[in-house]
Amino acid sequence: MSDWNMLTLVGADRPGIVAQLTRVLYQLGCNLGEASMIRLGGNFTIMLMVGGERSPDEILEALKPAAEEMGLRLHLDPLRGGLHQHLLPNLQVRVAGADRAGIVAEVTRTLAEQGFNILELESDVAGDRDRPIYIMNIQGYCDATLEAVQGALAPLSESGVSVDVSPVDVMIG
């Protein structure tokens, strides 16, 4: 179980995609690791760790008929690393504001300057077509203090984007 591949699939969403793909992989003798599936803009997207003895070519070949039938784009990359490499976040950054170009670039550049390692990022556009609102949640790890990160992000708040930094306190019990 040392060799993992990262399988990426994107396409029009419909019920049953995961079931069909994972059945093919199971029948091929593959193991599945961590996965993240989400609808983005009405599309099905998944990134899935696939392990086992099969070569990347064999995996792609086996998935091709199902992917073609469902109109999914398929991509497979050999993956370094593996399971049990989780890092715990200690800070959460919530961003919301009238949608405009550059919010993500500005927030993440500031975070990068603070040495903030983004572990999870999700963003959405809410509101309506005329007045879209950009909403982003970031969780990550940073050695700088919450106050330092807050201070660095403060200029953004003045430009009309609401930025909130809070601790992520993982309760182990």
């Binding site: 049990h84 715990l88 992520v168 306190d169 993982v170 309760m171 182990i172 019990g173």
Partner: peptide, 13 residues
């Protein structure tokens, strides 16, 4: 909502 882990569920939060 808050993040939790557990001695009985290692390596997961």
């Amino acid at each position: 909502m808050g993040r939790e882990g557990c001695l009985s569920v290692p390596d997961y939060t």
